[in-house]
């Protein structure tokens, strides 16, 4: 990362994050189990950096986003935002820190009051946090509109009068209004058509460079991820299985699940169609009852007997390249794995 000085502390540090959702059942609705949505996840994000969280439905990526935002209370673990531990702050105490961490949703429409003009929606956080009022708010909102590529006279329009891409710009303007350090973006371009998706991705990158924003970027789309991220964490059933800079992830994926994801991704190139190495079979197991050991062993072509009992820790096997796989020891051969030794 060029914009990161070596001594600077990461703006967001997450350590051993756990979030279990209880399952209730039986006549008395007693607690009968738990969905281990997030099961011991650690990562950091520097100012000006994008960390991508990628994985399939139910892997816990959105829960991490919500927990970091403290919209959901963590079961265990530490969340340190700009040097302050916010993991156990009660909602009242959390208020003061909310300004620093903002979010952009997949569907901004559902997060906007349909009865308020868009200018009021974007200006609300400014007034809530006492950062401005009256005329001053209006001026700042107008500047925000311009910055995200909307005409300031659109401030009088309502959310339904905008297109999907414009609404996402509104959502970005709102998140940006209080000058945050971190933005959690959960599938922000998934609902957009590709031509509009490009506009929004470019805008997010420009804003990051201008304001040194840290992004926690959550997506299932590997191509989008590769475009916007500096580092990427691949998740499977509540755990990070691989974490590294995007170049190594795409050039030299080490975890069999990452390899499966990359191999399954379609590419807009008809010549590539017969080049797929293998397609991983089976479904993602239920997060309420994940397989023991390495969660991926049920679908992994390289699994050995130990994979069924030992949950592999996430270890740094090469500089900056973390992987949780028994068959990828520290300093091991980064070449292709052989099927079950």
């Amino acid at each position: 990362m060029s914009s990161q000085s070596a001594s600077e502390r990461p703006v967001l540090e997450v350590e051993g994050l756990v979030k279990h959702f209880p399952i209730h059942g039986g006549l008395l609705q007693r607690r009968v189990g738990a969905v281990k949505a997030v099961d011991g996840v650690s990562f950091t994000i520097a100012r000006g950096e994008t960390l991508g969280l990628v994985g399939e439905s139910g892997c816990g990526k959105s829960t991490i986003g919500k927990t970091v935002l403290k919209l959901v209370e963590p079961t265990a673990g530490r969340i340190v935002l700009a040097g302050e531990d916010i993991s156990s702050l009660k909602p009242g105490a959390m208020w003061a820190h909310r300004r620093r961490i903002q979010t952009i949703f997949q569907d901004p429409y559902s997060s906007m009051n349909p009865r308020l003009p868009s200018g009021t929606i974007v200006g609300e956080p400014l007034e809530n946090f006492g950062l401005s009022s009256g005329r001053d708010t209006a001026d700042r909102v107008a500047r925000l509109f311009e910055r995200v590529g909307l005409r300031p006279d659109a401030m009088r329009k309502y959310a339904h009068e905008f297109s999907g891409g414009q609404r996402q710009r509104l959502g970005i303007a709102k998140a940006l209004s209080v000058n945050p350090d971190v933005i959690v973006a959960d599938e922000p371009v998934s609902a957009l058509d590709v031509s509009v998706q490009a506009q929004v991705l470019n805008l997010l990158i420009d804003l990051q460079e201008e304001f040194r924003l840290a992004y926690l970027f959550i997506s299932h789309d590997l191509a989008v991820m590769r475009h916007i991220s500096h580092r990427i964490a691949v998740m499977y059933l509540g755990r990070i299985v691989e974490l590294t800079d995007k170049r190594s992830l795409f050039m030299r994926p080490l975890h069999p699940y990452t390899e499966a994801l990359l191999s399954a991704a379609t590419a807009p190139d008809p010549k590539r169609r017969r080049q797929r190495k293998h397609i991983v079979q089976g479904d993602v197991p239920s997060p309420a009852n994940p397989p023991p050991g390495c969660h991926f062993h049920t679908r992994c072509p390289y699994a050995i007997a130990d994979c069924k009992v030992i949950a592999p820790p996430l270890i740094e096997v090469a500089e900056g390249h973390h992987v949780a796989c028994l068959r990828r020891p520290v300093g091991g051969d980064p070449g292709p794995l052989s099927v079950s030794s």
Binding site: S195, Q197, A198, A223, R247
Partner: peptide, 23 residues
């Protein structure tokens, strides 16, 4: 359309650089 989509199949760029997508 083809220029607007982020690509996975093109040679990986140097870490940290993010070429603009064509809108």
């Amino acid at each position: 359309l083809m220029r607007a989509i982020p690509r996975l199949d093109i040679e990986a760029d140097a870490a940290g650089t993010r070429p603009r997508l064509q809108e």
